[in-house]
Nucleic acid binder design. Sequence first.
DNA 1: TGCCATTTGTTCGTATGTATT
DNA 2: AAATACATACGAACAAATGGC
Lengths: 239, 239
Amino acid sequence: MDAVGDGVTRWRRVADGIRAAIGDGTVADRLPPEAELAERFGVNRHTVRRAIAALAADGLVRAERGRGTFVSGGAPRLAYEIGPRTRFSENLLAQARRPGGRMLRAAIVPADAETAALLDCAPGTDLHRVESIREADGVPLSVATAWYPAARFPGLVAALVETGSVTEALRREGLADYRRRETRVTAERLSAADAEHLSSSADGLVLVARAVNVDLSGRPVQALVTRFHADRTELVFRS
Amino acid sequence: MDAVGDGVTRWRRVADGIRAAIGDGTVADRLPPEAELAERFGVNRHTVRRAIAALAADGLVRAERGRGTFVSGGAPRLAYEIGPRTRFSENLLAQARRPGGRMLRAAIVPADAETAALLDCAPGTDLHRVESIREADGVPLSVATAWYPAARFPGLVAALVETGSVTEALRREGLADYRRRETRVTAERLSAADAEHLSSSADGLVLVARAVNVDLSGRPVQALVTRFHADRTELVFRS
DNA sequence: TGCCATTTGTTCGTATGTATT
DNA sequence: AAATACATACGAACAAATGGC
């Protein structure tokens, strides 16, 4: 490098400087332009951009081309409760949010090894695969992919389209009730396709919840992978 | 720019090219040096670096200074089960993993509003704040911050240091048993400090689990924020 | 409507620092 | 000790989106 004070890189010191300015309220909403920051910190504009990229990665700021770079005001997350009787609509209505959503795709696919194990069926078994988006107050919240044994629920997709409700569609197919057996949660980066569906910036995060729902006798009826927008959601588990 | 084929930026096309090469096995373990990639794709080395940074952000590759850039072979995640009686050591031993860890810091701090609400005490109440790292087979798994009412457990920190076990330390302080009331899960980017503790690249992800543990009469005894390394962990909730 | 200044995004060039082999 | 390879930093130019006039 060149004349560096300590062992810390310049872009880190710029990032810390901006972070401090946000912390003490010196910059409330919008950051000065990159060119001005570069001059003020006595570094190249690239160095400022590297610093801002780091802050953006921490979710502290958000850069918008042609407009500027803004301090991201953290909106409160929706608390999505997951338990034995998780139902999307009930969950949202309990928090005075309007549930919504739509089906993206539906197809019949052969079960791969992983899904077959979850649904306790033979690999290759015909499954309905249904992809859908779920919204709260019109804001996309999650993208979900669900698999159902096709032989057991032959008219499922039509019922889903007609009712718009998983619970109601399964009821029409003869399933009185179901409950969630287990949920496995991981975190991933938003894929480009999901970013579009969730109308989010491309560098967002998702909470991935993999679940199995079973009927009252314990037979799996649905394998579910839901990708929740991490900035808008918090998953709640009660013990 | 200059002669661009379509509306896609060059670094994205380079990234897609590398991604494809990884996908079809053309590059199995190690990427060619940046200079060679630059020449092969007919772009500047900076453009290659931008592409590699994006792939690294997706967790697909991992750059090591002086050595090269490597395809990160996804190790299977540790399934960390969370329930009413979550105990770290038991959890790991059940999967034939060796539990470990160490305390990072301990201090007495006044309760802020949020923690006070969780622990059902007045804001400003003295709390032990204990930060620690937990490991599986010597690999850092999570960084945890715990708050305990100091008045109720005066000798807690000494007991934690001596026993290395939360359950055992609380028992010495007169708490026979405790259970988890609820867990709230979010996803965040790894902070610089946590990245060091978890010996991870700076652009990793964490699963943040916020929990409250209560005694048998339902009184909160511990507020807990655990940041799990998302690449190494999967949280499992049974209903 | 279109033009223009502002601001972030991309790309190239060049040089030097630092860790690994 | 030398070569290799990634990391940081500066300079310059143009592209693309936004917003005001």
